[in-house]
Design a protein around this nucleic acid. Structure first.
Lengths: 214, 214
DNA sequence: TGCATCGGATACAGTGCCGTATCGATCCCC
DNA sequence: GGGGATCGATACGGCACTGTATCCGATGCA
């Protein structure tokens, strides 16, 4: 037995794979039926395990959920970094190219096509859980904060190249951008009512409003 | 027995009271633990009834939830109308008065202090349910659509008095306003992380951006 | 006041999920 | 290749909730 419970978090490869499969299954099941409605049993079945495996890896459904959000947050931060470093400076020279780049950076944090749209459902679940459980709330707030700070930095870097800046407080700007993106994505998952404005056009209107020459 | 099942929806006063108490309790319980996590039993207990009363009035939890959203939507539309008719034209003459009026109209649809902040939790629940259940989705979309159309009309009426107009598409404008309001309200329910921007300032920034002289 | 209907309470059988305790296979290291 | 630790499967008792069928008191009408 290792001396410390807080020793190296080096879990055996086998255990790591089990955890990963459980997390994958949790993502799927949670997105499909909701975190609260999802039974531990259903997650295990989707992962091809029995509850024995689950309780050997997680203490509760909440812990599983938090591990999942952490994994996804890490992955999103990675995607953000990649998106920023792959922005083509040449493309930025035109207004269209600039707006496309902004949208790409935003989309990298809230992937639409790649990881299916089910992540935005999970975001809603996360927020809802946070509104009820203080422990979850802390994690949620921290993750959101970190993500937004990195996005501000990323977008500022992009805009510097162009001699542009935010016309309004950058925190408000990010909130508006992310809000518009999320709203657009969710709207896309619902049946249309009347004239449906898509996320793309909303974002472009917004970008025009809040970006100004430096 | 009445000939028609679709006769007058005139329910007896007693029955109406029972339904109202069940709806009140549902609001409370749903907001507290979530729609999915809430057991019918818990709702009944909160209302001071047994499940017998519930099944005598509703076929399922979903039906109860839909009845609840309908009642609340009606109440919100009423509040919106009242807010618009009580706007003081004199107050509109100053920029501050105008912004306050805009905020009041918006707040009337998404009440913050009055009906507690728990309604925005219910909104999230509603949206989440809509993303999963097509039947719920239709209702959700319809309600949102109606609300937004009425808000556009209301705000346009207010702005006409001042010789102002939306600088951008009015549907986009409403989406941004409502989004900002909701985001601000939810943020207010969570522990602060770093500099917390409140809903009020976000809305004012936004109003300044999207309102222009006619 | 008596009677018919309505509306909510009670009783019951059934189900799915929970968390734990224990067992057995697999993996790893010497 | 054996022995010990690890890890997931199995088995068990229990509980909370579901939906229905039935009962009984309240209510309203003649």
């Amino acid at each position: 037995m290792p001396d410390e419970a807080t020793a190296v978090p080096g879990r055996s490869p086998r255990r790591e794979r089990t955890r990963a499969r459980l997390l994958d299954a949790a993502f799927e099941v949670f997105a499909q039926v909701g975190v609260q409605a999802a039974s531990i049993e259903a997650v295990c079945e989707a992962a091809g395990f029995t509850r024995g495996a689950f309780y050997s890896n997680f203490a509760s459904k909440e812990e599983l959920f938090l591990a999942l959000t952490e994994r996804e947050a890490r992955s999103h931060l990675g995607a953000l970094e990649r998106a920023v470093t792959t922005v083509d400076p040449a493309a930025l020279q035109t207004p269209e190219g600039f707006r496309a780049s902004v949208r790409e950076v935003i989309a990298s944090v809230l992937p639409d096509q790649a990881a299916k749209s089910s992540w935005c459902v999970m975001e809603l679940e996360f927020e809802l859980l946070a509104l009820r459980d203080p422990q979850v709330a802390q994690r949620y707030v921290d993750q959101q904060h970190q993500l937004r700070e990195e996005m501000i930095a990323a977008l500022n870097r992009v805009m510097d190249v162009l001699g542009l800046r935010f016309a309004i407080d950058e925190h408000v700007a990010i909130d508006l951008l992310l809000g518009a993106h999320e709203a657009g994505q969710r709207a896309a998952m619902l049946p249309a009512a009347g004239a449906r404005r898509d996320a793309a056009s909303m974002l472009e209107v917004l970008v025009d409003l809040i970006v100004a020459p430096a």
